[in-house]
Design a protein around this nucleic acid. Sequence first.
DNA 1: ATGGTCGGGGACCGA
Length: 255
Amino acid sequence: MKIATWNVNSLNVRIGHVLEWLDIANPDILTLQEIKQLDEAFPADAFKELGYHAISSGQKTYNGVAIITKDKPSDIVTDFPDLEDPQRRILTATINNNRIINLYVPNGQTVDSDKYIYKLSWLEALIKFLKQEQAKHKNIIILGDFNIAPEDRDVYDAEKWGEEVLCSPKERAALSDIIDLGFCDVFRQFEQVEKSFSWWDYRAAGFRRNAGVRIDLILASKDLAKNCIGSSIDKEPRTWERPSDHTPVIAEFDI
DNA sequence: ATGGTCGGGGACCGA
């Protein structure tokens, strides 16, 4: 089973890229973030033509998440039970007995902002939700745009970035709390080239200079992670015309 | 500095 995550920064603009990439990469499951469109605008038919089921939790202008999957999704959840939130940032479904949790974690802006406080409370609600999911499901994969760089090696210039948002101790502690529930960042189970990133700033030739960060993650529950046979970042779509600032992250499982 | 959205200019948001 091949599973992937991609923050597309507007599905309206990137639908061509996504269809092209599905054709090339042929994943069984693809989770999307920042689709920035309402459910009524979601192009489910275009995915259906390629043989995929497609579900979305959409929002106008901002946020919005979707799951594209060869096998039928069931038991769909779009909200945390304990967080009243109009922002569409989570989409959970069961696919082939695997619980797929697609996340678009809030950015947080700066560590002294209200958005940062929202990010931390959102992560707290996520952890509560994950505990509930673990009580119900054995095989869980959490993937998406975490907006957290796990370690300094996940940042192009960690010294310059310091403890700013994406790298602040509180965010990283929240990510550690998630991992400690019994998950593995599968990308790090395999040898990777140094300075592997999943996002590059559009500005100042970020991609050309490889001035990026690795914030798009795939976390698998421990038993599942044992069956992970590879994980990679596909930089190719970032080279295409009018790209998203993120590129797909992939994990392959022998299941 | 760049890109998307909404709206019809420029503010907001992203990481």
